[in-house]
Design a protein around this nucleic acid. Structure first.
Lengths: 130, 130
DNA sequence: CTAGACCTTGTCGCCGGTGTCAAGGCAACG
DNA sequence: CGTTGCCTTGACACCGGCGACAAGGTCTAG
């Protein structure tokens, strides 16, 4: 399988596949004419990469998962390094959820007060009772 | 007040203040020698900018708040445009919270299963009963 | 007069994952 | 033989909010 076919089957672009290669995530053979040649297993790898990217991982974080697949495991998640990354990411997400919750509260308060102020001003302008 | 003093008082850098100026957020006068001269009100403006940036706003989102302050209001939140941005941002944060919650769940599941698999493998390897 | 602290504008770099274009090789079909 | 389509490497662009540096002007104290 050459790069164009892999790109299409994986739902991405050739540019992206070449980039993954520079990052050490995908390792094609080369045919005599210099074309990249991928075996079926690489399709799996690319799917794993895309799935993890979609969840918010960076390419660096993904490396252990790819290594795990390449080591013959049926899931990229089960190797120690992958588990470590999963733990770390889960902690990061939890922390971010906390921060975002705080932000949400602040925004909500700000909005509530701004609206209250505007309504009060409106009442005063019209000389209406509260 | 010149740029260095404002930067120090606002807890930021001169580079940053000049950048805000290019973005139309801060408007210094110029003294005869070409130096930027800020009045006290600008300190307030810069504080508002920094506070909103810290919450996750972009400079574009912040513009209405600055305009609101500059229009004489004691808070940047109370003008219609600001309220609109607050509403939009709150919605964005809510959406992001949802997505992040889903991601958290997925990570948690992945982690749980990976660990379960590792333990099972461990048991099998040692020929122990479950 | 000079050193030093401040100011000016202009430019490049970063980060991450891609899009996009350029210039050129290789293969297959007519 | 030429066209078409796929492949190659290389390089610029993007987005946002700055950091950092260069080359030069200005003001003040000694």
């Amino acid at each position: 399988m050459r790069i164009g076919e892999l790109a299409e089957r994986a739902g991405t672009s050739t540019r992206t596949l070449r980039y993954y290669e520079t990052q050490g995530l995908v390792r094609p053979e080369r045919s005599a004419n210099g074309y990249r040649v991928y075996d079926e297993a690489e399709l799996r790898v690319v799917h794993e990469i895309r799935a993890l990217l979609a969840v918010g991982f960076g390419l660096d974080d993904i490396r252990p998962f790819v290594a795990c697949l390449r080591a013959g495991h049926s899931s990229g998640d089960v190797c120690p390094d992958s588990v470590a990354v999963l733990r770390r990411k889960l902690a990061e997400v939890d922390a971010y959820l906390d921060r975002l919750g705080a932000v949400r509260r602040q925004l909500h308060d700000q909005l509530t007060q701004a609206i209250a102020y505007r309504e009060e001003t409106c009442f005063r302008k019209r000389g209406l009772p509260r």
